[in-house]
């Protein structure tokens, strides 16, 4: 097997806060190959967006700092790279889509100008060629009347349109890796489906690797090849998406999947209660030495509060960091 396109290994990110040192990312290891979609799921505050920002080299410093680990883009180390070199990679080789299409576009420029600008910055083409590319990109993300819409200001477009523009902007330089940080959280369901379709189509066409950060388990099931489940700054389960979703090993993953509400086929008078995982994500400043999920876990073992579980292969192409799963396997 050749080197993965993007490989993050043993990445540790610390934040110095008033309450003490917070380990936001704790030995994260993941990788994506060309043409693959990796989904990252987890509750808010578990480090999904931090993973994305560290890959882009955009961790706010101070207070954040990459303490150790490496991020390699086709063998090239990104951690510790100078700003100038990093700028050549950002936007060009790695593109990023943000969560809030409403506020992620600059309100005082037309969308065409904004896309053209990023092309011009990276490829040094003429303003005219860049503008033409902007219109092409708007067509590629299926915006009707692309040539006219290129002259629209962000406030004149709907949320879904704006997210399409964001995608066009991120893909304008044909990056090899696209990081989508909750690209559909702010959109309504039908638009979400359209955006996911669009991402899938574009990926088929361009062969871009996508890291998709989302809360939406359905989208993960539909789109992703691999999935990583994060909890309190660590990856707790990782593997092929079908396998992880159908046979989850970690109690947290089981809980997450159970929390997805489903439309009942025969709506009866008695409604099912929605599942929830009791409790909240612990503060990152005082994680005990055991499993971070132990206080909320319903299959907790004595060893869970004293030893931190490590990622172990529980099934083929499937890793989980859970003592209960390991104990089950040993039986």
């Amino acid at each position: 097997m050749s080197d993965p396109l993007l490989a993050v290994s043993d990445l540790v990110v610390d934040f110095q806060t008033r309450a003490g040192n917070a380990r936001v990312l704790d030995h994260i290891t993941l990788s994506v190959n060309e043409g693959e979609i990796l989904g990252i799921v987890g509750e808010s505050g578990c480090g999904k967006s931090m993973t994305a920002l560290s890959i882009m080299g955009l961790i706010p410093d101070p207070p954040g700092k990459i303490t150790s680990g490496s991020i390699k883009l086709s063998g090239q180390e990104l951690v510790g790279m100078g700003v100038d070199d990093l700028c050549k990679i950002r936007g060009k080789d790695i593109g990023m889509i943000f969560q809030e299409p409403m506020t992620s576009l600059n309100p005082v420029f037309t969308v065409g100008e904004q896309i053209a600008e990023s092309v011009r910055l990276h490829e040094g083409v003429s303003a005219k060629a860049a503008q033409a590319r902007a219109v092409d990109m708007l067509e590629a993300v299926e915006i009707p009347e692309a040539a006219a819409r290129a002259n629209a200001y962000p406030y004149q477009l709907s949320g879904g349109m704006r997210q399409r523009v964001m995608i066009a902007m991120a893909l304008a330089c044909r990056p090899r890796v696209l990081i989508a940080d909750e690209p559909t959280t702010a959109l309504d369901t039908t638009v979400q489906a359209q955006i996911f379709d669009l991402l899938q189509n574009l990926q088929d066409e361009m062969g871009t690797a996508i890291i998709m950060i989302t809360h939406d388990m359905g989208a993960i099931a539909e789109l992703a090849d691999n999935v990583a489940v994060m909890y309190a700054g660590s990856i707790v389960e990782m593997g092929k998406v079908d396998n992880v979703l159908s046979h989850p090993d970690h109690t947290y993953t089981k809980g997450l999947i159970a929390c997805v509400p489903h439309l009942s086929s025969s709506p009866g008078p008695v409604r099912e209660r929605l599942m929830e995982i009791e409790g909240v994500v612990p503060a990152l400043t005082d994680l005990g030495k055991g499993c971070a999920f132990a206080p909320r876990c319903n299959a907790v073992l004595p060893r869970c509060s004293s030893d931190k579980p490590v990622l172990l292969a529980t099934q083929e192409n499937h890793l989980a960091a859970c003592w209960a799963a390991e104990a089950e396997m040993a039986e």
Partner: peptide, 25 residues
Amino acid sequence: MEYVAAARSGSARDLYLIFKVILPN
């Protein structure tokens, strides 16, 4: 604002951010 972060992720340098992204706003 997020569009400043977005511009930064598109590799805008400091001077570009100051004069072409933030100042017009």
